[in-house]
C-alpha cells in the first residue's frame, strides 16, 4: 500500500482547516480506508478536541520526533470507525520543535501501512506551514467566501506552486446561499474567478458543526447534516469518484457588483 499524504491548509486562521481534517479523516475511514490524521499545529493543538480524543493523549508529535516514544505509541485509535488514528500536536512547544525533514521521515514510516495521511496545517506562511506542506502529495486549500480569506488562499497557492506541490484543490467553507443571493457574500464563481484552481468541495455554514465540535463528534458521523454530506462528498472526490456538485443559482458576480474603476476623470 502506498499512502497519499494530503495537507489541509489555508493561510488565514479560523476558516475550517481543523474541521475539514477531522471530517475528511472520519469520512475516508468510514469508506473503509486506513487513515492517519496528524495535527501539525504545534502549540495550538485542537484536532484532538474536534475528534473527541483529547482525554486519551499520552504522547504527541514532538515526542515522536524527539525519540521520547515510538511512533505507534503516539497514535490514538478512534474506536467509532474502523481504521482511523490521530497523532496529536504538542501543546506546550512551538513550531520550531519539528522540521520539514522530520515530517517527511515520519510520514514515510506510515506510507506502507495506510491509504491516507491527512495533515492539519497551522495558519500562516511560516515554519509550521512549511512543516505541514513538506511531505504532501496533494494539498487541499480551505477558504471562506470572504475577500481576506481568499486573498490569503491566493498567497498560499502561490507558495505551494513555488514548492512544486501543484496548485492544489479548493474547498469553500461556510457558504451561505441566502447571503450570496442578497449580494452580501462572495459566491463560488467569484472565489474560483480569482483563485483559478480546481474546486473539490463546497461546505455550507451549518450550526451542526458547532454542536459537533463541542461534543467531539464530527458531523460526518451523523446522517442528517448538510455539512456532513458535503464532507462525505469531498472524501469521495478525494478517492477519485466523480460526485456532481449541487448547482446553486447565482446571478451577477460580486466583482461586477462591487468593482470600482480607477483612472477615469470626467
Amino acid at each position: 500500500m502506498a499512502a497519499t499524504v494530503i495537507t489541509i491548509t489555508s493561510g488565514k486562521g479560523g476558516v475550517g482547516k481543523t474541521t475539514t481534517t477531522a471530517n475528511l479523516s472520519v469520512a475516508l475511514a468510514a469508506q473503509g480506508k486506513k487513515v492517519v490524521a496528524i495535527d501539525a499545529d504545534i502549540g495550538l493543538r485542537n484536532l484532538d478536541v474536534v475528534l473527541g480524543l483529547e482525554n486519551r493523549i499520552v504522547y504527541d508529535l514532538v515526542d515522536v520526533v524527539e525519540g521520547v516514544c515510538r511512533l505507534r505509541q503516539a497514535m490514538i485509535k478512534d474506536k467509532r470507525v474502523n481504521e482511523l488514528y490521530l497523532i496529536p500536536a504538542a501543546q506546550s512547544r512551538d513550531k520550531t520543535a519539528v522540521t520539514p525533514q522530520d515530517m517527511i521521515e515520519l510520514t514515510d514510516q506510515l506510507r506502507d501501512e495506510f491509504d491516507f495521511i491527512l495533515i492539519d496545517s497551522p495558519a500562516g506562511i511560516e515554519q509550521g506551514f512549511k512543516n505541514a506542506i513538506a511531505p504532501a502529495d496533494r494539498v487541499l486549500i480551505v477558504t471562506t467566501p470572504e475577500m481576506s480569506a481568499v486573498r490569503d488562499a491566493d498567497r498560499i497557492i502561490g507558495l505551494i506552486e513555488s514548492e512544486e506541490k501543484g496548485p492544489g484543490d479548493l474547498i469553500i467553507n461556510r457558504l451561505r446561499i441566502d447571503m450570496v443571493r442578497r449580494g452580501d457574500m462572495l459566491g463560488t464563481d467569484d472565489v474560483i474567478d480569482v483563485l483559478a484552481i480546481n474546486l473539490i468541495g463546497i461546505v455550507p455554514d451549518d450550526e451542526a458543526i458547532i454542536v459537533s465540535t463541542n461534543r467531539g463528534r464530527p458531523v460526518t458521523l451523523e446522517n442528517h447534516s448538510q455539512a456532513g454530506q458535503a464532507f462525505k462528498n469531498i472524501a469521495r472526490r478525494v478517492m477519485g469518484e466523480n460526485v456532481p456538485f449541487i448547482k446553486l443559482e447565482e446571478d451577477d458576480t460580486f466583482f461586477k457588483r462591487l468593482s470600482r474603476k480607477l483612472g477615469i476623470r470626467n
Binding site: 461586477k256 468593482s259 470600482r260 480607477l262 483612472g263 476623470r265
Partner: peptide, 12 residues
C-alpha cells in the same frame, strides 16, 4: 497616481 474611481463600470 490614478484617482477618482468612476461609478460607471460598464466597460469593466
Amino acid at each position: 497616481i490614478a484617482r477618482s474611481p468612476a461609478e460607471d463600470d460598464s466597460r469593466d
